[in-house]
Design a protein around this nucleic acid. Structure first.
Lengths: 224, 224
DNA sequence: TTTGATCTCCCCCAAAAGGTGGAGATGGCG
DNA sequence: CGCCATCTCCACCTTTTGGGGGAGATCAAA
């Protein structure tokens, strides 16, 4: 039995979703809320498996409430964002807040039910258009590495190691220490790889490393 | 009418999918192929709207064939990758190749039909587990910017401009030219922002810019 | 008005980086 | 075996970078 909470400031909409879901044998609506604040309290009290969350709400919007619930709480709930349309501006914030789904309110009822079951099973469900945008964003980030990665292959393995270290923000001296070689050797490698890649200085080398996928956002603590 | 091509090296599987799809009134299977090579030729000949593509195939695998079809061809077709299971290693290559969908063969027939219609309508369809991973990858990339972006706010707007220029691989002289200020002023800003962010040199500044989202992979031509 | 922040620019100086050229050692390959 | 790539290091040099001051102008806020 999937225990669901419905959050929407419009009581009518709320009831509509609740009725549709309660009609399913394996789904039970255990709570409703009309504001973000209410949602947070109700989530703590009822610990639902799934929270259907509207974005536009008085007092506290659905994204903020989602973030609160998923961080402060024991985080047993999973959130599906339900919005009227045109999610452009919200979708990234929603994913960042930890939402497991993002669907439009105009979907057919059976799709909503399917979304609840999918997310209940540990999956995720996005509106098709959103999936598409996510894919294209992702493909873009991956895709740029193509031709650049070819340039990368011109480097020797040692030079690639040095480049990786440069992309970690290391100075020549630090690289020397890390690779157990002399500072002079590091300079040789640096000069060589800059020349091979057609770069001017280590700052450009860092850019190159990120653009070609040698270094990736999120892999590094910027603790310096 | 959605015109579909089915590509799979196992004739039985191929026929199965084809029958399921042909059973739908708005879907027509116009071609089948058993290898990547065949797929490329058949795609050129029949110009299907949707291509259901298996990955594991003799001669040329589905990902390579997908990339070929979507780049060389007039690119009117959209590809849904169909694989047996455990897509871990393939999903990123598939998205990179330009696939619009990635579903597992064990889905119920109606889901396959739904995927075809969704992609036919210009959307995208991923298996729930894949959507989830994509989201978490994405949220991670967005999320890391959080605390770092706070450090960013300590900078003045001018310093942020300079940081952005540094992250573009520009030297101090180039930044001066770009911002219509003297090189000495650039040095002042650079020193100031490095100090405020706790960084040592511009290479670390580039790393910081990428990690906090001030610079993003794919935004830049690495033409230097 | 005074204060603080910001932007602009200057000086000097030390450290780091990058280029050039050379050189010895290793190991693979024809 | 000689050839070539690679890794290692050196010396010498120029350019860039970054730090430490100081200073004038502007502008908004106290």
């Amino acid at each position: 039995m999937i225990r669901v909470m419905v959050v929407d400031d419009q009581a009518l909409v709320r009831r509509g979703f609740a009725l549709v879901l309660d009609n399913e044998p394996d789904i039970e609506v255990v709570a409703e809320a009309g504001t973000g604040i209410e949602a947070i309290n109700a989530a703590r009290e009822h610990q639902p498996d799934i929270i259907l969350m509207d974005i536009r709400m008085p007092e506290m919007d659905g994204l903020e409430a989602t973030a609160q619930i998923l961080t402060t709480n024991g985080a047993t709930s999973r959130v599906i964002i339900l919005t009227t349309f045109d999610p452009d501006e919200y979708v990234f914030r929603a994913l960042q807040a930890g939402a497991s789904g993002f669907v439009l309110k105009d979907i057919p009822p059976e799709s909503l039910v399917e979304a609840v079951r999918t997310v209940g099973d540990g999956g995720a469900m996005l509106a098709p258009g959103i999936t598409k945008r996510l894919i294209s964003e992702f493909a873009q980030k991956l895709g740029t590495g193509r031709n650049l990665a070819e340039r990368l292959e011109r480097l020797t393995s040692r030079e690639r190691e040095v480049l990786t270290a440069i992309a970690a923000g290391k100075s020549n001296a630090e690289i020397a220490e890390a690779l157990f070689i002399g500072p002079a050797t590091v300079k040789t490698h640096v000069s060589s790889l800059l020349s091979k890649l057609g770069l001017r200085d280590r700052a450009q080398a860092v850019v190159f490393a990120y653009e070609c996928g040698l270094a990736n956002v999120g892999e590094r603590d910027v603790g310096f």
